[in-house]
Design a protein around this nucleic acid. Structure first.
Lengths: 211, 211, 211, 211
DNA sequence: CGATAATCGAGACGGTACGTCGAGTCTTTAG
DNA sequence: CTAAAGACTCGACGTACCGTCTCGATTATCG
C-alpha cells in the first residue's frame, strides 16, 4: 500500500471531499510520535490524538499502522537526496555521501531503522522500503560513477556495483548497528580509503588508518 | 538485562531452586515461535504454552519479551563463530566470512534483524546486541589481520579498522536491507575485490565486475 | 456504585453513544453465569464471552464483578414485589409473603445470598443491598399493617416494627441458612402462628405445631 | 472435610512428628486475616506468612481455603455456647440469647457471614456450617423450652419449633442483613414481645413497640 | 433551494495480549 | 516424615491497543 488510498477516479465525486491537509497533519504526527517512542510503541490512538483527528480519519487513508509509517517515510525521503556534479569523482562522492549521512542522521533515519525488523515479514513494506531508501540512493551513486567514467577517472575493470553497495552498507551499518556517528571524518575515510581506491585510475592503496 | 535473573548473592539457598531445565525449554520455545511468526507476532502466551509453562515462570527469569529474545539469541550466538587459521589471509577471510554468513542466514539472523529496530530505544539491548553480534565477530577479524601482519602479508599503512568494519557492513547490509542472499560467490567477491586489495601487500586493484 | 456509569452531565454527547442494549445483554449473561456456577466462580471472561462482548465493554459500565452483580440484581428486584390489597390483614400478609418467597426462591435469591458475605467489607454494596432487598419489602409490609390498623384490625400496642422485622427474618433465615424450602405451608405458619397473633386484635396464641 | 487431616493411626510413626501447635497458629492466623479483609480477599499466602508457615504446612492439614476456614470457625464455635438454667423461661432465654448475640458479634460472626454465600455451592460446607452454627444453638433452645414445659410454663399447643426458628432468625437477620447491633435491648424485645408470648401460658400479646 | 452522501472528531465496540496475582502442587535444605 | 521457603502450572484479573463501527455535525455536489 504505502500511499493514501483515494477512491480512484470516481464518478463525479459525491459527498464531502477529503481534507488533504489532514494527510500532512497525520504524517507529521506519526513522525513525531515515532521519533519519540519508536515504531513498536507507536499507537494509532497516540497519532490520532496528536493530530486531533479521529482514528477513522487515519484508517480512511492508510490500511494499517505499518502502512502509515511507510508512507510517512517515503514522502519525506523523496525530496532529500542531492545529486551533486562537482566535476570530480572525489568531490561528488564526498558531497553526496555527506548529504545522505545528514539525511539518515535525522528522524527519518530512526524511522527507517524501526522498519528494518519488519522487512522479512512484510513483503510490501520491503518493496517500498528498498525503493525509498536503497534504490534512489544507489541510482545517484551509479550516475556519479558513470560521469566519472566518461571523464576517464575510472579503471576499466573497476567493480562499480560493489562500490555502490559498499557505500550504502558502510553508512547504514554505522547508523543502525554500531551506533557510531555518521560525521564528516567518517565519510571522508570511506571515500578516500575505500571507494576511490576501489574504482579510480592510478590510485595506490595508501589509506591511512585514522580510526 | 538479557540474562535470567537469579536472586544474586548465594544466601544459603532457601526454598525450591529454579529449575534450570526450564530456562532451556523456554528459550527453545521462544526461538521456535519467533522462527514461525517473527518477533512482532511472538506472544508470551504462545511461548508459555509451547513450553507448558506458566507466564510467571517466564517473567521470573526475564523482564520482558525483548529480554527473553535477547537472551535466547545471545545464548545461541556464542558458540557459532569459527576462528580459522589456514595460514593465509585470503583463506582465513574466506573461511570466517562464509561461516559468519551461514550463521546469519539461519534463524538467529532473523532474530537479530528483528532486534535492530529496538536498539535506539533500548540501551541495554544495544549493549548486549553489539557484544553478541558485532564485537565477537570483529575481534576474530582483527586477530586474522594480526596474524597476516605477522606473516608480513599486510601493507604497513593498511586501514585495518576500516577493513573490519566493511566486512561486517557488507554482510549485514545484504542480510537485513537488500535481502540478497549471503552466498559463497558474494563472500568471495567481498574478499577478493575489497578486503584483500584494501590491506594486502602487492595487490593491484584489479577486481572484475561480476554483477 | 451499582449502576452503569455514564459520563454524567449530558455534555453535548460526543463520540459514539453507549449501546444500551449491551447493558441488558451483559446483565442477562451475568445472571445466567451466576445461576450456573455461583458468585465466586463467576468470571468476567465468562460473562463477556456469553454476551459476545469485550471485557472493556463490561468495565466501561461497572467497576468490578461485584458492581455488575449488584446492579444486575437491583435491576431485576425492582419489578417483582406485589403490593396486595385483599381487604384483610391475613389475606394481605399471605399474598405478599408468598410472592416474596417465590421471588427469593428464584435466581435472584441465590444471587442475594452470594452477596451477603461481602456486606461487611463493601459499604456501598451494603447500602444498595439493603435498599433493594430489605427496605422495599419492609415498606410494603408497613403499609399492609397501616391499612389493617385503619380497618381496626390491630391491637393498639401491637409491636408493628417487630412484626415487620420477623417476617423478613423468618423467610431469609430459611432461604440462606437452613436451606429449607420457602413453600406455602411455611408462609401460612408464619402468618398464622406468628404475625397475626403478634399484632391482630382478639387473637389467642393458638398456633398448632406442624413441624 | 473441615477437620485437620491426620494420617490415621499409623504404624510406629516414622519421621518428624507433626507439630500440633502449628494447627492453632494457622487457625489463629486465618481468623485474623479473615476478620481484617473478609473471606474473599483471604489468601493462603497471607495466612502462611502471618503464621510464618509454608503453604504446604497448611495443605497438609486442610484440603483447601474453604476447608481451613470452616474448621477454624467450627473449632471456635464449640466452646462458646452457654446453656443457662435460671429456673424460668424468660431468664433462660434472655441469658442464652444474649450470650449467643455476643458470640455472633465477635469475629466468628463475621466469618460465619462470609461463609453464607458459599453454602449453595458447597454441600460439605453447608452441612458443617449448619451443624456448627444452627443445630447446636437450636438444641440448647429446645432443651430450654423442654425444661419450661416440665415446669408447666408452656401452653400445650405452643409452636415450639417455630419459636426456636424465630429466635435464631431474628438474631442472624440483624447480624448479617440489616447490620443493626445485637445488643441487650434487642434481645429483650425478642424475648418479651415474641418468644414468651408465643409459647408461655397465660401471656397476653401486650408487647410495647419500643423502636 | 433541499436532498443526498461522504467527510470530520469522538469514542464505544469485539478481540487479543499484556503483566500480575492467587490456588494448589512440588522440590529443595534443615531438623 | 515434617518444617519453611519458594518455584511450579493454571487460569482470572483489569488495562491497553488494534481495527471497525456509530454517533452528531459539517461540507460538498446533484436534482
Amino acid at each position: 500500500m504505502a500511499t493514501p488510498v483515494y477512491s480512484g477516479a470516481r464518478t463525479a465525486q459525491r459527498g464531502r471531499p477529503r481534507d488533504a491537509s489532514r494527510d500532512d497533519a497525520l504524517r507529521r504526527a506519526a513522525l513525531e510520535v515515532m521519533a519519540e517512542v519508536g515504531y513498536r510503541a507507536l499507537t494509532m490512538d497516540a497519532v490520532a490524538a496528536r493530530a486531533r483527528a479521529g482514528k477513522a480519519t487515519i484508517y480512511r487513508r492508510w490500511e494499517s499502522k505499518l502502512d502509515l509509517v511507510i508512507d510517512t517515510c517515503t514522502q519525506l525521503a523523496h525530496q532529500n537526496l542531492p545529486e551533486p556534479d562537482t566535476g570530480s569523482l572525489t568531490g561528488d562522492l564526498r558531497e553526496f555521501l555527506s548529504g545522505f549521512a545528514a539525511f539518515l542522521s535525522g528522524p527519518i533515519g530512526k524511522a527507517a531503522q524501526a522498519l528494518v525488523g519488519e522487512l522479512p515479514h512484510e513483503p510490501e513494506l520491503a518493496v517500498a522500503f528498498r525503493e525509498t531508501f536503497l534504490t534512489t540512493q544507489r541510482d545517484v551513486l551509479r550516475r556519479i560513477l558513470e560521469r566519472a567514467d566518461e571523464r576517464g577517472e575510472l579503471r576499466p575493470e573497476a567493480p562499480r556495483g560493489m562500490a555502490v553497495e559498499l557505500a550504502g552498507a558502510a553508512l547504514i551499518y554505522r547508523l543502525m548497528l554500531t551506533g557510531d556517528p555518521l560525521d564528516l571524518p567518517f565519510v571522508d575515510r570511506v571515500v578516500d580509503q575505500v571507494l576511490v581506491p576501489l574504482v579510480a585510475e592510478g590510485h595506490q592503496l595508501t589509506g591511512v588508518e585514522l580510526t
